[in-house]
């Protein structure tokens, strides 16, 4: 019985990990409700620095090695962590630009996006969000 429970527990944990998705959140005051992969790339790589309403974009990344960041790199940026690091090194030397702020926890991302009108970040799909942030739809194109 104990072994069955243990197996069930393992199955639950691993299926949760495999099924984990990320969602993108913005400040509640932001009128944007949908964004494409290309636009997310443009925001992250600072090719586009303002929202359509003129608000400056503040992108909040996650710390290296976190599961959500791995998903973000693989599914949205389609680059490895090393490739992204080297891109930002080049940008720093040529344009003075720096990589987006890296944030360690889900709750801190939510807190930052809620406080910064142009903020955008990503978190694992999960429980309901507090006031101040909303999830936006992400499309392939």
């Amino acid at each position: 019985m104990l072994i069955l429970k243990f197996i069930f527990f393992l199955f639950f944990i691993t299926s949760f990990a495999w099924g984990q998705k990320i969602v993108f959140i913005v400040n509640s005051s932001n009128t944007v409700s949908r964004i494409s992969h290309d636009q997310l790339q443009d925001f992250y790589f600072k090719r586009n620095r303002t929202w359509p309403n003129g608000l400056p974009i503040r992108f909040f990344d996650r710390t290296d090695g976190s599961e959500v960041r791995k998903l973000f790199l693989a599914n949205i940026l389609k680059k490895t962590s090393r490739q992204v690091d080297q891109f930002w090194i080049g940008q720093k030397l040529y344009t003075g630009d720096s990589a987006p702020t890296k944030v360690s926890t889900r709750s801190l991302v939510i807190s930052l996006v809620a406080r910064f009108p142009g903020g955008i970040g990503y978190i694992s799909e999960g429980s309901a969000l507090p006031d101040g942030v909303k999830v936006i739809e992400v499309t392939e194109l």
């Binding site: 030397l93 987006p100 702020t101």
Partner: peptide
């Protein structure tokens, strides 16, 4: 922590200039 992040510019290395604007420092 959120206040600290919002009040500082994005890079970790920040130097406060006499103009009270934050300069970012990097190099090789």
């Amino acid at each position: 922590q959120a206040d600290l992040v919002l009040n500082s510019s994005e890079p970790k290395t920040v130097v406060n200039a006499f103009l009270n604007d934050n300069l970012t420092l990097g190099g090789f």
